[in-house]
Amino acid sequence: MDNFNLNSRKDWTVISNIIENGSRVLDLGCGDGAFLRYMIETKFISALGFERDQKEVAKCIANGVPVIKSDLDRKLDFALDKSFDYVIVSRTLQELTEPEVMLKEVLRVGKKAIVSFINFGYYENRLQLLFRGRMPESKYIPHKWYNTPNIHLGTIDDFKILCNELDIKILQTIPIGKSWGLPAKLWQNMFAPTCVFVLG
């Protein structure tokens, strides 16, 4: 992977810092597998990706990343309990039919889960809705309301409440803001466009 740029997505840096060398990692919605390949090469992880698009699956194979073509709305019944050190759910939760069911599955097969979450409560999104009266569109939510794959958008606070209801422990909360470093830390729900959660 010659042109892989870790910095093209801030959550990737955060996630790769969390994962220990040699971990067994499952990435749900792994795209072309470039990120997993990066972690195979730098963190010597044993990786498995899930991807629903045939073209992306082919790219994963070309990247030397083990990948399963599957719709994530299937249960993860291929995997034994706690058989992965980490399960990455990278900006995919909002696309699932039953995100809460998937969250439970993820923590059945993974010792820990890393969820990269798009925060619908980010102030720019709020402003768009408040002043334009239109559904927000941004770098993280690039679609129109009628063609978006994001069918379950929520805010950071919504996500925390869901975890509480599901009895899922949030081990780490890492808000990711562009120039809003400090405010994003203090007022995550308002100033962090995305957030990485480590769940256990």
């Binding site: 044993s46 045939q54 699956v57 082919a58 194979i61 990343v65 083990p66 073509k69």
Partner: peptide, 8 residues
């Protein structure tokens, strides 16, 4: 834990 890729 065999290294496997699957595609339909």
């Amino acid at each position: 834990e065999v290294e496997v890729s699957f595609c339909e």
